[in-house]
């Protein structure tokens, strides 16, 4: 695999999820590692020819047929034009890159997934991986918050899993829009508040977190209050990334590189690094 050369991919579907976010399905070479062998939390570099390239987390499950699911917010000069792409349009991919969530260390543990906003993308991938081998883990809990109900993603899918007893789901929004009722189980509260009523066994629970940096400090301090040690808390960090392979110098967190050593770090690894949580 040449890590510098994007291989061709075709956009096979684009499904708008909210006003600014879509679920993009790509197709690339069958059996290529970029689609078939990644850990949840790892990322790939997606190119839109003529526009550029950006890092994006895997949102789905590894596939041997070359298909890749990504959840993309259209906010920049590459992700923006992607909004108007149509099935059949050309793209290109390189990856997988970085370190994902430590699935091996999770065996036998209760798992607490905490997603804020678009952070649901890598955590959906993690959830799918956990459900695929459900017997390996203890309790599965997902806390998921967004700004408003219209910004909650994959709610149908998540509620379905909740109804089938596969996952304990708690949804929350910062505020309710005027004319909407939230989906069932949805509260109006900031994400860290969901931790207040959680009963968990800190010695057998691991937390996997992805969200906007603003929620990290509060989430972390609540989890510590609940008795979770720093090596049981894993966070996915975002940074500006221009290469994905440890060369462009943009993504250091302390002296670790987010693209190579991360983007998933344990809290213990981030100890003492000013500004690590954002």
């Amino acid at each position: 695999m040449n890590r510098d050369l994007p291989i061709p991919a075709v956009i096979s579907a684009i499904r708008p999820l909210t006003v600014d976010t879509s679920l993009v399905t790509l197709n690339t070479e069958p059996h290529h590692p970029v689609a078939s062998s990644f850990l949840p939390g790892q990322f790939l570099e997606l190119s839109l020819p003529g526009a550029g390239e950006f890092p994006v987390s895997y949102c789905g499950f590894p596939s041997v047929d070359g298909s890749i699911e990504l959840c993309i917010r259209h906010i920049g000069h590459v992700t923006g034009p992607l909004r108007t792409a149509v099935p059949g349009d050309a793209a290109a991919v390189r990856g997988p890159f970085g370190h994902g969530f430590p699935l091996l260390a999770y065996v036998g543990q209760d798992l607490l997934l905490i997603a804020g906003g678009l952070g649901i993308a890598p955590l959906r991938s993690l959830l799918l991986a956990l459900l695929a081998q459900r017997e390996l883990w203890g309790r599965l809990t997902l806390l998921y918050g967004a700004r408003e109900t219209g910004a909650l993603l994959f709610t149908d899918e998540l509620l379905e899993l909740q109804n089938r007893g596969m996952v304990e789901l708690q949804l929350t929004v910062d505020h309710l829009e005027h004319c909407f009722d939230g989906p069932p189980y949805c509260r109006v509260a900031l994400l860290p508040v969901l931790l207040d009523q959680l009963d968990l066994e800190p010695d057998r629970t691991c937390a996997a977190i992805c969200g906007p940096p603003v929620v990290y400090p509060l989430l972390v301090s609540r989890l510590r209050q609940l008795g979770l040690s720093d090596d049981r808390i894993h966070l996915s960090l975002e940074r500006r990334m221009k290469c994905g392979v440890g060369r462009c110098g943009h993504c250091a967190v302390g002296t670790r590189l987010c693209c190579v050593d991360g983007p998933v770090f344990s809290l213990a690894e981030l100890a003492g690094i000013e500004g690590a949580l954002g």
Binding site: G52, E53, H250
Partner: peptide, 15 residues
């Protein structure tokens, strides 16, 4: 110091 930024330029033929 080796930091680099990456830019993409679309050709006039747009393909």
């Amino acid at each position: 110091c080796y930091c680099f930024d990456v830019l993409e330029f679309c050709g006039l033929d747009s393909c």
